[in-house]
């Protein structure tokens, strides 16, 4: 099967620490790129669905990101909103890693 995704190179993998998140700004929009302790990568919108905050400033634990402003949590693998005050899921984006770089399909 051919790769039909619109991959855009985001960050080098070294820019995202294990068990943490990094922010990537592209074309006027911010994305949050996550790396688990077992080196799986995920990407979501970086702006919380509740009020304005960059979730990449937040606290990562396991596969959960907690928004820095009001402590709403999301599962960053699926974008699912886990507890109030957040109730709208985060948008997620396909990710691949090639030659030490993280690519995101932001289409």
């Amino acid at each position: 099967m051919s790769d039909t995704k619109n991959w855009i190179k985001a960050l080098d993998t070294t820019k995202v620490a294990r068990g943490d998140v990094a922010r990537w700004d592209h074309d006027g929009r911010s994305y949050a790129i996550f790396r688990t302790d077992s080196d799986a990568f995920y990407a979501t919108d970086d702006i919380c669905t509740h009020e304005y905050a960059h979730i990449s400033d937040g606290y990562v634990e396991g596969t959960t990101i907690e928004c820095p402003r009001h402590a709403g949590c999301f599962d960053f693998r699926t974008g699912q909103a886990l507890n109030p005050p957040v109730c709208v899921n985060l948008r997620t984006f396909p990710v691949k890693v090639e030659d030490g770089a993280i690519y995101i399909d932001i289409a």
């Binding site: 400033d57 937040g58 820095p68």
Partner: peptide, 15 residues
């Protein structure tokens, strides 16, 4: 202070 350092520092303290 900044939202990043305050939230991370406080959340770590809670943990």
């Amino acid at each position: 202070g900044s939202i990043r350092e305050v939230s991370r520092g406080v959340r770590a303290g809670q943990m």
